[in-house]
Design a protein around this nucleic acid. Structure first.
Length: 553
RNA sequence: UGGGUUAUGGUGUAACGGCAGCACUACAGAUUUUGAUUCUGUCUGUCUAGGUUCGAAUCCUAGUAACCCAACCA
């Protein structure tokens, strides 16, 4: 099966490298900066890096790119590790760029000794000024030709804390007229008197990304360093440092990052949503974070399948959210236990059913017989869904209406005799008669009905809060719209049903359980839930052909 | 006025000079004690213009469009 599927370009590169004998086995890495929570876009990279190593018999390191102490925190380190594990992956080594600070410092000294780096006293404004623009070459800094000994001494002084933040930087000496802006004497070390989450106050100078990432790859003998497209211009610098330092030649390859409809994917924007209270936190079920999807009830398998289906290429993309939902439903359909819950209750009284009588009816837990059955209490008064009754039935309506018959799932066929309205004209009660011979499993009535609806026995029901989520944004691509992306937030992304009626068995639900509430979607317990106050999240709706029919008119 | 990357149905992704395939979406139908699932079918595509070739999505030439690059962020 897997042989039929064609390889993506990175797999082709790996196979070539293996076949040519360039490498005996491969080593990849997943290199997050611990300054935020992982999102669905990261899972593409995780599945790629870990998947490659698994497929071709290599290993994958988890390396935290923690070279900027002011934005990073151990809170993020912990959440990142939990999210990767939840997705189903395990790393060979847990490493940190900060582990290499001594080595990186030595690399910088080596560059200075080779005359390939210098200390610059210019302000950041001056440096920006002299850098030029993409269409105009830059100019050399006045400090560019300092002697090697002076540079060595100055850099040593930077390290020892003699200078304040921003007073000096160390730059690679390359070419201020280079067409690649990153090659115009990039800053490789800056002064930051800041506390680092791991190295504490040992350092007051920190390497820039470009002076840490490639070298870290090299130290770990990473064979294939895979990153996203925006790092393409960095590759030239990446290779330059490796060459000048004469270290293990890791290679960088770039693929297009994941974009998905109706959401945003940049850490900056996600941070804004959290900080400005548009969502309740990083793990809000509306967030595209891994922890958000987890809380909402997504399964790790569905996300892995999704990442597999979207492919790996270099073209900008905007993936339909519906593909993720398809992968989710496909998984949940096979694994979720079926149960009944009424979200918008309407009282049904079965007038010819004995008052006070309770029957224990049997219902299947899922499509697969191995999932077993459970019993559900049935009695004279039930809750059904308000939307399952229409006083004046629409065309092709086969649920309840005056005179109409429906099957109560796993129970009896009932016929609607009349209904009661309140003063506001709302239907508040429907009265039905049931057909005793139509009992589910032993139906001898000979009656065929088109509609089957779910229900809960009023006397036996438990209540629960239910949270219904919708897309966070009203438009497909909030980032490409005019103005601020937050203007496009969907005001109705969360609907709370404070009192829904659920079948009794649901009171035993655990956080790990996945349910399909019949005809209403997939649900799971929320982490806010308590024994006395059950809270269910809707993971995703079921596909709904009827609502489409309604829209058509 | 620079450099880099990418262009295949509505979306994503295959094709490695030889029948444009697959999946999602949409639509139609069958089955259904979930208007779900399952099954069957349908619509829709090679950025443009030239050229090479028996034959071009693929090779060549010239355009066009989108994205990225001027943080002491990663």
């Amino acid at each position: 099966m897997s042989e039929e599927k064609s390889l993506h370009f990175i797999e082709e590169i790996v196979e070539q490298d293996l076949q040519s004998g360039k490498y005996k086995s491969i080593i990849t890495r997943f290199p997050p900066e611990p300054n935020g929570y992982l999102h669905i876009g990261h899972s593409k990279s995780i599945c790629l890096n870990f998947g490659l190593a698994a497929k071709y018999g290599g290993s994958t390191n988890l390396r935290f790119d923690d070279t900027n102490p002011v934005t990073e925190d151990t809170e993020y380190v912990e959440s990142i590790k939990a999210d990767i594990r939840w997705l189903g992956f395990d790393w060979s080594n847990e490493l940190y760029a900060s582990d290499y600070f001594d080595q990186l410092y030595a690399f910088a000294v080596s560059l200075i000794q080779q005359g390939l780096a210098y200390v610059d006293d210019s302000t950041s404004e001056e440096i920006a000024q002299l850098k030029g623009t993409p269409t105009e070459p830059g100019k050399n800094s006045a400090y560019r030709d300092r002697s090697m000994t002076e540079n060595l001494q100055l850099f040593e002084e930077m390290k020892s804390g003699k200078y304040k933040d921003g007073e000096k930087v160390l730059r690679a000496k390359i070419d201020m007229a280079h067409t690649n802006m990153l090659m115009r004497d990039p800053i490789i070390y800056r002064i930051k008197h800041a506390h680092h989450h791991r190295t504490g106050d040992k350092w007051c100078i920190y390497p820039m990304y470009d002076f840490a990432h490639g070298q870290s790859d090299s130290i770990e003998k990473i064979t294939h360093s895979i990153c996203t497209l925006e790092f393409i211009p960095h590759r030239e610098l990446y290779d330059w440092f490796i060459e000048k330092l004469s270290i293990f030649p890791s290679h960088q390859y770039e693929f297009a990052r994941l974009n998905m409809t109706y959401t945003v994917m940049s850490k900056r924007k996600l941070l804004q949503l959290v900080n400005e209270g548009h969502v309740t936190g990083w793990d809000d079920p509306r967030m595209p974070t891994i922890s958000g999807f987890r809380r909402k009830g997504y399964t790790p398998a569905s996300i892995r399948t999704f990442c597999d289906k979207i492919g790996v290429a270099k073209r900008e993309n905007l993936i339909d959210l519906s593909l993720l939902e398809f992968c989710l439903r496909e998984d949940l359909n096979h694994t979720a236990k079926r149960a009944m819950a009424v979200l918008d209750p309407l009282k049904m009284v079965i007038t010819n059913y004995e008052t006070g009588k309770t029957e224990e009816l049997t219902s299947e837990n899922g499509p697969d017989a191995s999932m077993g059955t459970r019993t559900i209490p049935f009695s004279k008064e039930l809750w059904i869904e308000q939307e399952d009754f229409m006083e004046v039935p629409a065309k092709k309506w086969f649920r309840l209406a005056p005179g109409a018959m429906v099957r109560l799932k796993s129970a009896y066929i009932v016929q609607c005799d009349h209904f009661i309205k309140n003063e506001q004209g709302q239907v508040v009660e429907v009265h039905c008669t049931y057909i005793p011979e139509s009992k589910s499993g032993s139906d001898t009535s000979g009656i065929n009905v088109k509609g089957t609806i779910h229900w809960v026995s009023a006397a036996h029901a438990t209540t629960a809060e239910i949270r219904l989520y919708d897309r966070l944004f009203r438009v497909e691509n909030p980032s490409s719209e005019e103005g601020d992306f937050k203007e496009y937030i969907n005001p109705d992304s969360l609907q709370i049903i404070s009192k829904a009626y659920i079948e009794p068995s649901l009171s035993q639900a655990t956080l790990e359980d996945r349910f399909q509430f019949l005809r209403k979607g997939y649900f799971c317990l929320d982490t806010d839930s308590t024994k006395n106050h059950l809270i269910f999240n809707r993971t995703v709706t079921l596909k709904d052909a009827w609502s489409k029919e309604v829209k058509k008119g």
